[in-house]
Design a protein around this nucleic acid. Sequence first.
DNA 1: TACTGATCATTT
DNA 2: AAATGATCAGTA
Length: 223
Amino acid sequence: MQPSPPTSEHALLERACNLAGQTLGELAVQAGISVPMDLRRDKGWVGQLLEWHLGASAGSKPVPDFDNLGIELKTIPIGYNGKPLETTFVCVAPLIGLHGLSWEKSHIRHKLARVLWVPVEGERDIPLPDRHVGSPLLWSPSEEEEQQLRRDWEELMDMIVLGQVEQITARHGEVLQLRPKAANSRALTEAYGANGQPIKTLPRGFYLKTHFTAALLERYFIL
DNA sequence: TACTGATCATTT
DNA sequence: AAATGATCAGTA
């Protein structure tokens, strides 16, 4: 009996607020699923548990979690210091077919247009069933945040177009990183080489750096 | 502790 | 292979 999809932002936020303070163990019981010992082989487990409770259109379909509302769900692991423990994966970076692509049309901008952030205790010494869910935050980028994201995106995409994808490190970009996003190091995809010729390289993804998500959460709790 | 490359499961 | 959901774990 999975909850039905929320029909409004308000309904979604209210539902998320009701999860705050509960543990992953409690939520797993309600969902009728078992809790893994750790996340080593179940890295997406927390996200999928929250999807179930919030009535997200689950699965790996390339649509927003709450398609009708245009909202993306992101769980974010929080440490004892109250700050994110991990970077946040946003989406895969396009490596070819980039003609005419702009920030305004980019997949990443649409993904980040409206996000429901759900903080979850993430320290590894807290047993998974005992970790608490925090207060949700329904977020859209501020003007400054959007400009930061746009600048980083344009810098990274310029390098990709110029065939320099393999020279990109996680330090190119103030708030966005480009890093491998693959099943393993053998998974390859097509990209532009330095002379415009096609090359095979690891699929890359855009990740939000922890200082960016930390600031975004902090902005909320200060306001 | 941040950065980095590598990895895990599942579905389409 | 690419999309969904991310964290792991070595090292500088």
